[in-house]
């Protein structure tokens, strides 16, 4: 009896200790992200607590400054185009990948996912040397290509994940009912893998929207994105306007986390529905 009680005691101590660590770590993880929200509303240029006062002046500063607005527009354009290119290429690749025989499949998926294991600095500098030769350095198009390299594997992973829970008999049924390949894809496969495609597209968007290393090398002085402006500013001093830009990036990430979470739930529902 006595030893039994001591066992539960140790267990409880371990459990409480682990929970305490988890809470502290959670605070450690979210504080740097949350802290910029109140700081961006400071009425002074000093970024300290307690805030000297609350104001929207740095938001006004951001949204009336042509440099920041250009950067925001560039970032959005780059992210949208990268998203479209990466989603199309990645979805097609994922559809092909799951149909390949096992041997081919492992080779092709290694190739498709290889950009994930190469340090970004090497992708950035490598494409910079290459594009400098082709006259693509410092261009929007060059950056779309580099960002698509980074985003493509994420789309492949997201779409492949939904395809693996996908019942191929549904497509066979469509063929048996006389549908030709494209309508069969459009009316049967597409709606079912849509959550995966949307997840992949979201990953692609945020990858490009947040990306800084390739932009440093390939953007040149002409093409400045939001992260590029934050980067050059933060190396000197972090101003409240930079905090506003950072808030925008964080908001984009939060929205994306919510979207992906909602899509995951939807995909679960769909695969359950398809199974019954």
């Amino acid at each position: 009896m006595k030893s039994d009680r001591s066992v539960t005691m140790t267990e409880r101590v371990f459990d409480l200790g682990a929970k305490l660590i988890a809470v502290l770590v959670a605070i450690f993880l979210v504080t740097p992200i949350l802290v910029i929200f109140p700081l961006s509303f400071t009425s002074d240029s000093l970024m300290i607590f307690p805030l000297p006062g609350v104001s929207m002046r740095w938001y006004v500063d951001f949204f009336t400054n042509p440099v920041w607005l250009t950067a925001l527009r560039n970032s959005l354009m780059l992210a949208v185009v990268t998203m479209v290119v990466a989603t199309v290429l990645g979805t097609l690749a994922a559809l092909g990948l799951v149909r390949l025989s096992r041997g081919w499949r492992s080779v092709v998926s290694t190739l498709l996912l290889s950009p994930l294991i190469v340090p970004v600095i090497i992708i950035g500098v490598g494409t910079f040397f290459y594009f400098a030769r082709l006259g693509l350095a410092g261009s929007f198009f060059g950056l779309v290509l580099a960002h698509t390299v980074l985003a493509l594997p994420l789309v492949v992973i997201a779409v492949t994940a939904t395809l693996e829970g996908f019942d191929p008999n549904l497509v066979r049924a469509a063929y048996a009912s006389g549908a030709s390949p494209f309508p069969a894809f459009w009316h049967v496969t597409r709606p079912l893998i849509m959550p995966g495609i949307a997840t992949g597209a979201t990953f692609a968007f945020i990858t490009s929207f947040d990306e800084i290393v390739c932009v440093i090398f390939l953007g040149g002085p002409e093409f400045r994105t939001l992260p590029r402006q934050i980067w050059s500013g933060a190396k000197e001093t972090v101003t409240p306007t930079i905090a506003v830009a950072a808030v925008l990036l964080v908001v984009a990430s939060v929205v994306m986390t919510l979207v992906v979470e909602a899509l995951r739930k939807r995909a679960q529902r769909l695969s359950k529905g398809a199974a019954t």
Binding site: A26, L29, I33, I36, M47, W231
Partner: peptide, 19 residues
Amino acid sequence: SILLPFWTSVLVRSMSWIL
């Protein structure tokens, strides 16, 4: 609280540590 930093830009997170 683990997922949020996972999806937040490395640049923004490093910058916040300066503050």
